[in-house]
Simulated scan of single mutants.
Amino acid sequence: MFCGISIASVANASPLTLPNPLTFSAGPLGKIDVQGIASGMAFYQDNPQGSAGTLGAKHVGADITNGMVIIQKENGPIQFYIQAGAYSFPTLASSLTSATNTISAYGALPMAYLKIVPSSHFSVEIGKLPSLIGVEDAFTYQNINIERGLLWDMEPTVSRGIQFNASEGPLSASLSWNDGYYTNRYNVMTGSLSYALNASNTLGFYAQGPLGKVHENHNPLGNESQIYGVDYEYSSGPWMIEPYFQYMHTPKAPLLGVTHAFDNYGGAILADYSFTNTLSLGARTEYLEVGGRPGEGLNSNDIASSLTDLPADSHAWSITLTPTYQSGGFFARAELSYVTASCPTGYGFSGANGTNTTQLRGMVETGFMF
């Protein structure tokens, strides 16, 4: 996970390492660290599923993945973190969206928070925070793969709220009151707990659920649901192996057109092997089961699909391979991913008409970090 965020969960692995920050004296604010990343991707995909004229509808295309500056203060009782710029979230089984359109999700300031640190064992963060849910992070440079996975697609990415962090020995915990899927409705509680068994093995648990009901016109799909996950990380020498399992329950909500409760659940294994200090290979394999009934929801909108980009009553497998090269601030990586799904007759997740059940993508991403 990127610098400056102190959250209690199994550490998220990434073969990319941001160089040491540029440090400036900011008068009464003290020392300020500045980092940045500029990167882009090119891709090929069969069965594109985007709307005509969009990036996702292309078989071949290119776009920005990161164009961001990170400014943070990491010392003293009052700290802060600011991340600003352009970004995109390429995700398996989901239409590719240009950075120009993606920026509308969380604005040009996707993450920003104030951090109060009264002691080395306790801190409080207030602002736009990364989610405690899942093991893959928001931005491409933070993960071993360029694309985020099937399980990531049903998780919150950024939430506004307040988060309490505490640690003692091998045990760490975080608790957050927030607006879930960036809904501006503060009725969600999120928590995570991790225990370092030893220097190489860490076990973690995370959960999220609503504190009350939300109204139809306030994006209730994710905020109505509960998510639970357990993850484990082994990291030693050149190896990082991280399996995790995730379960999501969406309750019956007749006012939203959900006449039956349903569950989404799946598991994934992420791994990374470093051949040298500059060359590594990342891999991910996943399985996701999607519940629900096709077409169930207001105006026949498929609520299960809106949470996962896969149709209700389906299941999918994926595999992703990502060799990565980094030397100093320069990096380049390639990726090959494949998703296949079993869906009800007449349903799918890819292709112009949305009924194809497989998708192959090839990507390259390169850029500079400072």
Rank of each mutant, 00 (worst) to 15 (best):
T202I: 15
I126Y: 13
T259E: 06
T91E: 04
Y228G: 04
V364F: 12
A84D: 13
G61E: 02
G362R: 02
V339Q: 08
S39I: 14
M248L: 11
A138Y: 09
K73V: 05
A57K: 09
V135I: 10
F2G: 10
A11P: 12
A268K: 06
Y347V: 03
S167F: 07
Q83D: 10
G204T: 04
Q49M: 09
S318L: 02
N184F: 06
K73Q: 03
P251T: 11
R293A: 13
T308Y: 12
S318G: 03
S9A: 15
N201P: 01
A99C: 10
H218T: 11
G346M: 11
N20D: 13
H59V: 07
K128H: 05
V230D: 01
Y87M: 11
M154F: 12
A99P: 08
N101R: 03
Y247K: 14
R185T: 10
Q226I: 07
Q83F: 01
Y228V: 08
L114D: 06
T366I: 02
L129N: 10
T324K: 08
I269P: 01
M248T: 04
S235V: 12
M369K: 11
G282Q: 00
M154E: 01
V60H: 05
S172K: 14
N143T: 11
T23Y: 07
F205E: 02
Q326S: 05
S123L: 02
G180M: 00
M363F: 14
S98G: 06
A38D: 05
P311S: 00
T366G: 13
Y287G: 10
G67Q: 09
E74Q: 15
D179I: 15
D179H: 06
G53M: 08
T54I: 15
S200V: 07
P251I: 15
T320W: 00
L175C: 07
A271T: 12
S327D: 13
A253T: 10
A84G: 08
A42V: 14
Q35E: 07
L211G: 15
H59M: 08
S235W: 05
A138L: 13
A334Y: 05
S318R: 03
T65R: 05
P110A: 09
A316M: 09
S314A: 03
G291P: 07
P77E: 09
I78C: 00
T276D: 08
S280K: 08
Q359C: 10
W152V: 15
L270H: 08
T285F: 00
S172G: 10
L310N: 00
G351V: 00
L298T: 14
I144D: 04
L270K: 12
L321S: 04
V69A: 10
G191T: 07
I71D: 09
G348A: 11
L256P: 04
A86K: 10
G27Q: 13
G367F: 07
G53F: 07
A207E: 02
R148E: 07
Q208Y: 09
S342L: 09
Q45N: 05
M154C: 09
T340G: 05
V290K: 09
Q208F: 07
L310A: 06
H315L: 03
T97K: 11
W239N: 00
F164D: 04
P220C: 11
G204Y: 03
S176N: 04
Y232E: 01
P238Q: 13
